[in-house]
């Protein structure tokens, strides 16, 4: 049977997060809370897509409602599970404290006021085996949906819905055009694009959400541009197999 349905008519509303029937019936998850448990696990998981290294230690700085109620919601277990790449629907999430001990990862939870951020937010500091570290701020914004708002000192917007390319570059005319030219040369479709900068002419970053996984070759081409300091590519949660 075929019923002609204009799905775009559905997308212009105030609930663009609910396009799929499975946004309403689903996801399958470990309880008790989509925001404090499933969302927390996703923030942890996506952090390891950003800092893609073997992790030796981690610090969690919990803000707002996360700080107030994390024990009752298992937010602590969920965050730890996430950084060990245990998915939000995996019952191993419950045993995160035992598993983190087996894997020899040191961890600590602190309470911290992160300022003007969503009430369900956490600052995660990950330490890698090669003595490097990265700081990530993520929020669980409702219904298990998440937003990474800061990586290191850079403001970003990464929601895990799309694969995301992030550049750090010098704020000069033409950088955005150069990056999009490379992407189009490889037939990559840009879904959304956003630019952040601290000051005019200073450091800036470009966030490009794309439909496909970007090959190493494309990332190298972008890295070779004079103005580009750093390129990072983050798989979507779907590509990472989380949802």
């Amino acid at each position: 049977m075929s019923i002609g349905i204009d799905v775009n008519a559905f997308r212009n509303g105030n609930s663009m997060n609910f396009n799929s029937i499975f946004d309403v019936i689903g996801p399958v998850m470990i309880g008790p809370s989509s925001s404090h448990t499933a969302g927390a696990a996703k923030i942890g998981y996506l952090s390891t897509q950003i800092f893609d290294k073997q992790i030796t230690a981690v610090e969690f700085y919990l803000h707002g409602s996360f700080a107030k109620t994390y024990k009752g919601h298992g937010t602590d277990r969920a965050l730890l599970a996430g950084i060990m790449r245990i998915k939000p629907d995996d019952s191993k999430l419950r045993k995160a404290f035992e598993i983190v001990q087996e894997r020899g990862i040191e961890y600590n939870f602190y309470k911290e006021d992160l300022g003007d951020v969503h009430p369900n937010s956490v600052r995660i500091v990950l330490f890698g085996i090669d003595d490097t570290s990265e700081q990530i701020i993520g929020s669980s914004v409702g219904g298990g949906r998440i937003l990474i708002s800061r990586i290191g000192q850079t403001d970003v917007e990464v929601d895990g819905d799309y694969a995301t390319l992030i550049t750090k570059h010098f704020d000069k005319p033409g950088v955005i055009a150069k990056v999009s030219t490379i992407l189009s040369a490889y037939g990559i479709n840009i879904a959304f694009m956003k630019v952040f900068r601290q000051l005019r002419g200073a450091q800036a970053s470009l966030i490009v959400q794309v439909d496909e996984i970007l090959k190493e070759e494309i990332l190298n081409k972008i890295q070779e541009l004079d103005e580009i300091q750093e390129v990072k590519f983050i798989n979507s949660l779907r590509q990472a197999g989380v949802i």
């Binding site: 309403v24 019936i25 689903g26 996801p27 399958v28 998850m29 470990i30 309880g31 008790p32 809370s33 989509s34 448990t37 499933a38 298992g74 277990r77 629907d89 019952s91 999430l93 419950r94 219904g143 298990g144």
Partner: peptide, 11 residues
């Protein structure tokens, strides 16, 4: 912390 289907939410 068991496995459930959020429908529409976990609550």
């Amino acid at each position: 912390m068991g496995r459930i289907v959020a429908s529409p939410t976990a609550g």
